[in-house]
Simulated scan of single mutants.
Amino acid sequence: MKLTAESVGWAIHGHKLLDDVSLGIAPGETFGLIGPNGSGKTTLLRVLAGLQRPKRGRVLLDDRPMQAMPQRDIARSIAFVEQQAETHERIGAREVVELGRTPFLSPLQPWTEQDDAIVHRALEDVGMLPLAERLWHTLSGGERQRVHIARALAQQPRILLLDEPTNHLDIRHQLSILRLVKQLPVTVVIALHDLNQAMDCDRIGVMEAGRLVDLGTPEQVLTAARLRRTFGVQADIIEDPVDRRRIMRFRCAL
Score class of each variant (00 low, 15 high):
residue 11 A to P: 01
residue 94 R to Q: 09
residue 81 V to I: 13
residue 45 L to A: 00
residue 129 L to Y: 08
residue 208 E to L: 08
residue 135 L to H: 13
residue 35 G to S: 08
residue 79 A to L: 03
residue 16 K to L: 01
residue 237 I to R: 15
residue 178 L to Q: 13
residue 33 L to S: 05
residue 228 R to H: 07
residue 58 R to G: 05
residue 84 Q to R: 12
residue 228 R to V: 02
residue 22 S to M: 06
residue 169 L to K: 08
residue 27 P to D: 10
residue 241 P to L: 05
residue 221 V to N: 01
residue 167 N to E: 01
residue 154 A to P: 05
residue 106 S to P: 01
residue 248 M to S: 13
residue 188 V to Y: 15
residue 242 V to K: 11
residue 228 R to A: 13
residue 19 D to L: 01
residue 114 Q to F: 08
residue 222 L to E: 07
residue 165 P to I: 10
residue 77 S to L: 11
residue 109 Q to K: 11
residue 176 S to R: 11
residue 247 I to N: 14
residue 138 T to F: 13
residue 139 L to N: 14
residue 180 L to I: 10
residue 231 F to I: 04
residue 151 R to A: 06
residue 30 T to M: 15
residue 143 E to N: 12
residue 183 Q to W: 07
residue 123 L to S: 04
residue 191 A to L: 04
residue 10 W to S: 00
residue 215 L to Q: 09
residue 157 P to I: 09
residue 20 D to N: 12
residue 121 R to N: 10
residue 119 V to T: 08
residue 153 L to Y: 07
residue 31 F to W: 03
residue 239 E to R: 15
residue 102 T to D: 07
residue 160 L to W: 12
residue 131 L to A: 14
residue 72 R to F: 05
residue 25 I to N: 01
residue 24 G to W: 08
residue 143 E to Y: 14
residue 171 I to E: 13
residue 191 A to W: 09
residue 187 T to K: 12
residue 230 T to K: 07
residue 63 D to K: 15
residue 168 H to Q: 10
residue 230 T to W: 12
residue 179 R to G: 12
